[in-house]
Computed example of a mutant assay.
Amino acid sequence: MPARTPRSSAPARSSTPARSSARRSANHHGIHLLRSAAAVRGLVESAGLGPDSLVLDLGAGPGTLTAPLARTGARVLAIERDPGFLTRLERRFGDHPNVRVVAGDLVKVPLPRRPFQVVASIPYDLSTLLLRRLLPDANGDASSLAAADLVVEWGFAQRVSRALPRDLETARWGATYELGVIRRVRAAAFAPAPSVDSAHLRVRPRPGLAGRRVRLVLYAMLAEAYRWPDQPARTVVAGVAGRSAARRILGDAGLERGVRAGAVPVDGWAGLARSALDLSRQGR
C-alpha cells in the first residue's frame, strides 16, 4: 500500500509478538491503522444497515470494520489487496455466512450492480479516485451507490463538502450527493498517528436526482456556471429551460433575479435542475 495510508485495524490491547509484527509491517509501508472504537462505532451506526443491505468494506485490512458491519446482518464484501491482511481476513471470516473476502484493489474491483453502501477508512491518496468511481461522471452515468460513510483526510473532506466548491468536478459531486462532515477523527485514532487529522465523511443521494436525464440537465447548468461564474444565474437556467421558464424557476427557488451563477450553492443548482426538468415535462 502507498505511504501515509489510513486503514482499519483492531485496537491493540497487548504487545503479543503477532500484533507487534503486524504493526512493524504496517509502519514499514507507511500504513496508519484506524484503532478508535468510537470512530468505528460512529461509521457503522451512521450507515444504518440491516439484513437486506449490501455493504463494501474497501481496504478492509485485518477486519476491524468488517466485524461490526457483519453484526448488523448485512451482506459484507471485505475488499483487500495486501496478502497478509487477506490471510487474516480469511482466517477470521471464512466461516461467516454474510461475509465474503475479496482480493482486489479498491479502485479497480468491479462494483455491484445492485444498490450498495460503502463503509471504509480509505487511503488519503486514493480518495479522489474512489469518489470518481462511486459518484456520477460528467456524462451522468453512475454506480449503484446508495450511501457511503468514509474516513478521509480532514482537508479533503472540507473541500468536497463546501456549499460553493472550487472546481466543476467537486460541484457535480456535491450537487448530486449530500457530502457532509459528521465528525473529526483525530490523528491519535490511528496507529501510528498520521501528521493530519481525518474526518467521517457522510455521502447520501440528493432527492430527485436518481435519473440520468435530470443529472444531465444539472451538469449542463453547472458547466455553464463554472465557465462564467460572474454571469447571472438566470442566464444559465435560460440556456436550458428558456427565458420565461428561468424567471419562474428562480422565483420559485427564492433566488434574486440578478444573483451571480458563482454565488448559487450546489444544492441550489440541484433544485433548479429538478424544476427545469419538471417544467419541460409539463410542456411549459
Score class of each variant (00 low, 15 high):
59 G>S: 01
63 G>W: 00
25 S>G: 14
57 D>M: 03
56 L>I: 04
29 H>A: 12
64 T>C: 14
51 P>M: 01
42 G>T: 05
43 L>H: 10
61 G>L: 08
35 R>G: 14
52 D>W: 09
34 L>I: 07
45 E>Y: 08
39 A>R: 09
42 G>M: 07
56 L>N: 03
57 D>A: 01
43 L>V: 09
64 T>G: 08
61 G>H: 04
67 A>T: 02
63 G>I: 01
28 H>C: 14
62 P>C: 03
67 A>F: 07
42 G>N: 04
71 R>C: 08
26 A>R: 12
42 G>V: 02
63 G>M: 00
63 G>K: 00
30 G>Q: 09
66 T>G: 03
67 A>W: 08
68 P>V: 02
44 V>H: 09
52 D>Y: 06
62 P>H: 02
58 L>T: 00
64 T>V: 13
44 V>N: 05
38 A>W: 06
66 T>I: 05
70 A>L: 12
41 R>S: 12
42 G>E: 07
56 L>C: 07
62 P>G: 09
67 A>M: 13
29 H>V: 14
48 G>K: 10
65 L>K: 11
60 A>K: 03
66 T>V: 02
53 S>R: 08
62 P>R: 10
25 S>L: 14
50 G>Y: 00
40 V>H: 11
62 P>I: 08
50 G>L: 03
59 G>Q: 06
46 S>Y: 04
62 P>L: 07
52 D>T: 10
59 G>V: 00
30 G>C: 12
61 G>Y: 02
54 L>R: 09
55 V>L: 11
35 R>C: 15
36 S>R: 06
57 D>F: 00
66 T>Q: 06
39 A>F: 09
40 V>L: 11
33 L>I: 09
29 H>K: 12
69 L>Y: 15
49 L>I: 04
63 G>L: 00
56 L>A: 11
34 L>S: 07
62 P>F: 01
41 R>T: 13
71 R>D: 11
27 N>G: 15
36 S>G: 02
70 A>F: 08
59 G>T: 01
65 L>F: 10
72 T>E: 01
72 T>D: 02
44 V>F: 05
72 T>F: 08
40 V>M: 11
43 L>M: 08
42 G>A: 10
28 H>P: 11
57 D>C: 00
65 L>Y: 09
47 A>Q: 12
25 S>Q: 14
46 S>P: 06
53 S>E: 02
40 V>F: 09
52 D>N: 12
27 N>C: 15
57 D>Y: 04
40 V>A: 06
56 L>W: 05
47 A>R: 02
58 L>D: 06
61 G>Q: 07
54 L>D: 02
47 A>Y: 03
51 P>F: 00
42 G>C: 05
59 G>M: 03
45 E>T: 14
27 N>V: 15
40 V>D: 04
41 R>Y: 10
53 S>L: 03
30 G>K: 04
39 A>V: 13
64 T>I: 07
40 V>R: 15
30 G>N: 05
47 A>K: 08
25 S>P: 15
25 S>W: 15
61 G>D: 03
54 L>F: 08
